[in-house]
Design a protein around this nucleic acid. Structure first.
Lengths: 138, 138
DNA sequence: GTGCCTCCTGTAGTCGCTACAGGAGCAAGG
DNA sequence: CCTTGCTCCTGTAGCGACTACAGGAGGCAC
């Protein structure tokens, strides 16, 4: 499962962290810049040295992003996770996000519906007037 | 329906066009900048003077955006509309876009499902460990 | 005349990265 | 010891589709 071992005792480079958490190195640097990841200590050579906690945090961020949470929402969740015992607030955030996802689904279904109806009006071929184009300029 | 009349004989200012097509003035300027709207003639005072064709074009763009077409896709559709008799290509574009919308819906439904399952694990309250947070860092 | 509204130009910000450029270090192979 | 190639570093610019100003001019009503 975990084929990547730390290059130095107990610390990972940014590339190793990237592979472990399944994100790009550039994304890690970006997260550091915007304050999503703590600034890590450096090795003597000036390279970033991460621990296993960062692997967890970064994986948390990636999973949350995959579920459509915004960076700000995730920042919030991380804050709650740090504080501990805020399960109620976490659940509320999750349910609120769920609602917004359902809203987006509803929007897309309306688009799908309209587009399907409109496309159905059209025979294709080389007709001089296209009912799809007509429908779009109303 | 059409409460806005041209301020000069047969031509609209950018503000009038904006209200007619239901977009922001800034959006019109932006579209001009990126070549989506033709550069209009100016009045003596230096203001843009649009005709009814621009109302149609801009409405077309807005409606297409509402259906989730990208600016580039719309540029394409406008090109086809200009050429005339390209009904087949228009229909193909519409169906291809429909497929991509359906893909997005499927993505969101997966998110919805995962999020709902995850949220259901959680009792809320002030529990020390939160199953939602746990699920997110795996 | 004076206040307000619209219009103009131009630039910078949004979100979440991605893609470079240009330089330094580090490990393996010859 | 030297080269080769990989990774790492910093910093900046680009994407898409706008939005939000700043700063100035013109025009209309009171």
């Amino acid at each position: 499962m975990c084929a990547i071992t730390p290059s130095r005792a107990g610390s990972f480079t940014s590339g190793e962290l990237a592979r472990l958490a399944n994100v790009n190195v550039e994304t890690i640097l970006y997260y550091e810049r915007i304050g999503m990841l703590a600034v890590p200590p450096r090795t003597e050579g000036g390279r970033r040295a991460y621990g296993t906690a960062e692997v967890k945090t970064l994986t948390f961020i990636r999973r949350s992003r995959e579920l459509g949470f915004s960076i700000d929402e995730i920042r919030n969740l991380l804050g709650l996770a740090k504080g501990g015992h805020a399960c109620g607030e976490v659940k509320a955030a999750a349910l609120s996000h769920l609602t917004s996802i359902q809203g987006k689904i509803a929007d897309l279904r309306r688009m799908e519906q309209t587009l399907a109806e409109t496309a159905a009006l059209c025979e294709g071929g080389n007709a001089p007037r296209c009912p799809i184009l007509d429908a779009l300029s109303k």
